[in-house]
Nucleic acid binder design. Structure first.
Lengths: 143, 143
DNA sequence: GTACATGCAAATTCTTTGCAACCCA
DNA sequence: TGGGTTGCAAAGAATTTGCATGTAC
């Protein structure tokens, strides 16, 4: 984890972005809450406990930056706000099972899509960079 | 197409919703612009040419209603607004290829996901009602 | 020292809501 | 007729922006 942070700092540094305390605490907050699909507001409240003076605009600007750098992935679950999580390109992609009753979002891993992707790429001349699969339904508890 | 409209009117009627002229023109506008992934504002401008007095709030209320009835599907392409299209449950699901350069959204059909879905359903006890696959990359023209 | 970052508040944008007038069934 | 619907304007919610001040490098 410290290793991951270092890697990110280096990525920022390489592109001449400053490693500000705000950026550090925001990254730490996200890192300490894995698989939480945090919104800007979520991160704001997490970070305000240690850095009360931080502004919500800084959160938004930082999240935008990190998403541009492909460090975070910006996602949307149709609940009116964007949510963010690490974009671990080295790991397998994971997808989301969204319960329409309780709203819980679970994750699952999968490789099956890869065969599908190569087929699409060939057929449509589309260069695939990323994908997102959302499955809606009722989770075990609500079913 | 007239048949589809009739089916929708019947669905509305069955649930005691009124078939107002506004609802009719909104449905027609969406029907006459297939595969366009229209936003509320898009539909507003389409409809205003023939019904200048219509209000944007009516568009939103109608789209909400139609999405609740699963006549439309509400989708999100991270461009800051919701987009809508018919939810043709009888047809095969189609998914989206989103170009990160020009923003074009193309569709493709697929059944491969079904094997994946039954596996998930069994393993996680998750009852699947719907799914959405988005693939990001560069389209043929931008590549 | 300087250009990039931040905090604050105001502005924007999308969407929702309250309410009186309206009109489909 | 009467309750669902509409249009309008105002309210809300999420996100962005302008600008003076602050600070990483």
């Amino acid at each position: 984890m410290a290793q991951k942070l270092e890697w990110i700092f280096r990525k920022l540094h390489d592109r001449e972005y400053k490693i500000t305390p705000q950026r550090q605490v925001i990254l730490k907050a996200i890192m300490e809450n894995p698989s939480q699909h945090l919104s800007a507001e979520d991160i704001y409240s997490l970070v305000k406990t240690t850095n009360p003076e931080i502004g919500l605009a800084t959160i938004y600007r930082t999240l935008d930056l990190l998403a541009d750098l492909e460090i975070l992935q910006k996602m949307n679950f149709n609940d009116g706000r964007s949510r963010y999580e690490f974009n671990d390109q080295d790991e397998h992609h994971h997808h989301h099972l969204i319960c329409l009753r309780c709203g819980k979002v679970a994750e699952f891993e999968d490789d099956l899509l890869e065969t599908l992707e190569t087929a699409i790429a060939k057929k449509r001349g589309f260069e695939i960079l990323d994908h997102q699969l959302k499955i809606y339904g009722h989770c075990k508890d609500c079913h």
